[in-house]
Design a protein around this nucleic acid. Sequence first.
DNA 1: AGCTCATGGTTGACAATGCAACTAGATGCG
DNA 2: CGCATCTAGTTGCATTGTCAACCATGAGCT
Lengths: 178, 178
Amino acid sequence: MTSQTTTPTEAAAPARRAAPDDSQLGAWRAFLQTHARLLHRLDEELQAAHGLSLAEYDALLQLAAAPDRRLRMSVLADRVLLSRSGITRLVDRLVADGMVQRYPCSSDARGSMAVITAQGVNRLRTASRTHLDGVRRFFLDVVSADEQDVIEQALQRVSDGLVGRLGEDGACPSMADA
Amino acid sequence: MTSQTTTPTEAAAPARRAAPDDSQLGAWRAFLQTHARLLHRLDEELQAAHGLSLAEYDALLQLAAAPDRRLRMSVLADRVLLSRSGITRLVDRLVADGMVQRYPCSSDARGSMAVITAQGVNRLRTASRTHLDGVRRFFLDVVSADEQDVIEQALQRVSDGLVGRLGEDGACPSMADA
DNA sequence: AGCTCATGGTTGACAATGCAACTAGATGCG
DNA sequence: CGCATCTAGTTGCATTGTCAACCATGAGCT
């Protein structure tokens, strides 16, 4: 198990070291499986209780947390990890449900701002009880504070490593934020 | 470490304790974000290099690992965390690509067995180099062995907690495995 | 100004997936 | 045996998301 801290020899060359052994994939498997199951469950609960998908919830959350309760479409897309077209459609749905309004952007006539409505805020608040309760029950209550620290650190490192290496894809423009 | 195996007080009543504070969600956020980014990346690489989605890869893997290199559709669905219709379609694609064959099940005329072909095994083997390499580079190399241990334990506990509580949903039948 | 090119957002075509309805075979009961 | 019911798998339809093509607008250059 603890053996590969070595990481020797090949820095740049993708000269494959031995493929990870089955026994080394425990954490990886747990990661995948847990995510799938947990997200499925949370989505289900949220959907059942409030007719909101996790993506929609997340979008509302981002908007509510943003200064002025509004965000540029592209920034929102960025935050909820959705493509531009994806966010267009998601916002379409939210608008149709009266939870968001779309404004032309004053400073850049190409852009749109998505603004969460009062109704959207309410809906979000109610939904958040369900959602956060789920997160607590299934995740926070089950993972000790120490474990959470480790998880946060380690996974954050993984995540950072990914955005750093934006090279061959360009799919995740992390550009402007304000 | 695990202080809260208790799960006390509210058996039925969702008597919410305080909603998790923003600062308590660090690990949770990292978990979500990292999963999204990493899976996106791995899928992308696998797709680019071998024209396989992660779901397809996973299915091939499950089949290859199964006794006789074959599985009942429903069992396969279970393992790759897909619905029955989802697995039907995924197998359809694999069959169309010659990586899997479908047989009627001898013991139960209703059933089908999905069997991975030699070609499928080859494809899987090649793809696995790319995939495992990605897992190694982005995850295993970045997360220390100790961290991996913690992650595996903690997340596995979360996952177990979920399947245990199959109550109100029934969406994740964890039934037969062998 | 006028051109060219990059950028923000939307739209069309399409892929993947789930749910519900359906079909065919199993299972249990009278 | 014959019927009711359950189960395995597939199919129709709706949903959600992507990519690529497409405006419209901003930005830089001449």
